[in-house]
Amino acid sequence: MSDQLKKIAQEQDAGAFRQLFLTFGPKVRAMLMRQGADSETAEEIAQETMLAIWRKSHLFAESRGNMASWIYTIARNLRTDRVRRQVVWQNFCEEFEVLQPPEAPPDEWLAREQERARVGQALAGLPAEQLQIIQLSFMDGLTQAQIAGKLNLPLGTVKSRMRLAYSKLRGSVEGSL
């Protein structure tokens, strides 16, 4: 996946981009529709998300970050702006400036890959009730109160499950930081 991004960045390789577009475009579209966007808006935002990846690919390649999480963040910001009509406080690149310190050491890439693998393991090991809340939060785009309503749980229980899940995710990567 990262090679694909390098090709896109260095050679402006339309074929590699097309592949990326085919992989992620429909996923972003599906996610946005789950979050209540109509089919047309979802398609528009999915396209624009991928366009941003195309335009900023040189930054992504340099920062050694994770592409799927960028794609998620860009789509989230576009949804905040277009669907929820709220302020995007940090556009993607600003968030990225903060998250990626320029003095990142050369072995950072490996560390990031390990971090991703550990987060993946931790996610797989979460109890079903915590994973469900994370899913509803990130993929369905629900607020804490909406999750509480949907699952018929007190708000405090939703918060505490989020905190428990978070501490497990955090514990899983502590060693690699």
Partner: peptide, 17 residues
């Protein structure tokens, strides 16, 4: 950043539309 990784992993698993 770690929460972004979680979001990215979940996005990768979404069944495409």
């Amino acid at each position: 950043r770690r929460l972004g990784l979680v979001a990215g992993l979940l996005l990768e698993r979404v069944a495409p539309e």
